[in-house]
Amino acid sequence: AATASGHVGRPSATVAPGEYTVLAVNPETTGVRVAIVGFGTQIRKQWYIPQEMPPTPDGLVEVVAHLVRDLQPQHMLGIGVAVPGVIETSSGTVRNAPHLGWRGEPVGERISQVTGYPAYVINDAMAGAVGEWTFGYGRDTRDLVYLNGVSGIGGGVISHGKPHFGSTGAAGEYGHMVIRSGGRLCHCGRHGCFETEVSLSRLSEVLGRQATLEGLDEDLRAMRDPDALAEVSRQIDALIVAVANVCTIHDPELVVLGGYLGALYSLDPERIRGAAHAAILTPETRPIRFTRATDVATSVLLGAAELAYRPFLADPVGMVNALRETPFGLA
């Protein structure tokens, strides 16, 4: 067929970015968070699928496949998946996700095979860092460190305006940075890891019940028991050591603390900022800013969505043409 320009061949795609969406997925130990995200980090729909047990790789693939079939998206570009574990981002393989019990799972490849859409997998804390950098408190920064505490502790680094994944995609596993010699045994085999010395489970022990992120701020401020207060103070001291180490290594403009780390920070921000500045070598050149994460769940989903949008941003016409043959097609 002849095009309007007189050339014979397939008409090129007309790209209007606002028409397109991606699916963002975040498996957690208690369920799966999902969002449809439009161009420019617009969350058009968001929901949570609770599960009694941590989702398996098969279970996650099935959830995503059902969603794609039910939604029948007409302008979807791909799927971004944020997983709490060590990710080989180049292949979309989950190398190790101990809190989910996954190891060596080619999640990205399997989701792509089942749905027909490209799937991109990223560590959930790195996704949170990207989300904060693109829409949260880090929008005007080029060097940012994000530390998040949920089931464990993870992190992400934005360095010189780019996400830093490391040589194998495992950068930012700060939860297994040893901050106390001879400390508690971690599931990784080391003693005194950041996520064993500063942990939600140890806060639950002194509360006498399971602590939740939703009610943690109120629980911490209501504490009166001397043993409980001593444990909180000990965890803040340990958090200071970890934050000072990270600041010394990365020299960031901004440190963002999410999850239960954000709750601990809010109890005594001046103490944490002051101790961290005292530990770095050149505090007089530029004070490092600290803040609590905007919204952990939203940041993670937006970071996963940003990863899925990258190929489109690099070559919008090429990607739209390539995806015309997906099961539901691109208009």
Score class of each variant (00 low, 15 high):
E109I: 06
L60M: 10
T291N: 04
P106K: 13
R234A: 15
L100Q: 05
E197H: 08
L216V: 07
G18Y: 04
T14L: 13
L200K: 12
I79K: 02
D217F: 13
L281N: 08
N321Q: 09
P11D: 05
R289C: 09
N26L: 13
S201L: 12
G78M: 05
P283C: 05
T14D: 08
R273K: 15
I249C: 06
E205S: 02
R234T: 08
L267F: 15
M76E: 01
E270F: 13
A65M: 01
G138T: 09
A129F: 10
L323M: 11
Y260G: 05
V22I: 04
D268W: 10
P17G: 07
G131Q: 07
L239P: 05
Y174N: 02
P57K: 10
I36A: 03
G104W: 00
S91A: 06
I43H: 05
A222H: 12
L239T: 02
S299Q: 05
T134D: 00
A230M: 02
G78K: 05
G149A: 10
L254V: 06
Q113I: 03
I158L: 08
L257S: 03
Y260E: 00
A275M: 12
E173Q: 15
M126Y: 01
S181G: 06
G172E: 06
Y146T: 09
W133T: 00
L200I: 15
G189S: 10
L261G: 03
V34Q: 02
R209Q: 09
L77V: 11
H176L: 11
G154W: 08
R10F: 09
A263G: 03
A4I: 14
P269E: 02
T248M: 08
L203H: 01
L185Q: 12
F312Q: 05
D124G: 00
T56Q: 02
L216D: 01
Q74I: 11
F290S: 13
L301F: 04
R324M: 11
D227V: 15
G78R: 06
T30H: 05
